[in-house]
Amino acid sequence: MSEITREDVQHLAGLARIALTDDEVTSLTAELSQIVDAIATVREVAGDDIPATSHPVPMANVLREDVVGETLTHEQAFAGAPSHDGERFRVTAILGEEQ
């Protein structure tokens, strides 16, 4: 049985910017433990000789030629934007920084 704590769930919710009620934290703590356990079971079955599955159909190297395609106009780009100055998107100043 994995040891997911309420604090773990609260931390994860914070990282994911999801607001949870106390009840939700309680139920998610139990559910997340079960999910982690389920994954652990699958892991036991897959030995070192079995590569990780990245796609249901085994494929690789699906690449695109370096050729310029269509771009959005300002009108299209800003169509769904809550705020903009005609050239750039306008967002609330957020304390933090680029990663």
Partner: peptide, 25 residues
């Protein structure tokens, strides 16, 4: 000019999907 070299993926619009650039690889 700002926001002229963009497409749905640059804006993270729903439904847009990435495909890797061969030259970049």
């Amino acid at each position: 000019e700002p926001n002229t070299l963009i497409d749905p993926l640059s804006l993270g619009l729903p439904g847009s999907l990435p495909v890797t650039n061969e030259t970049a690889v």
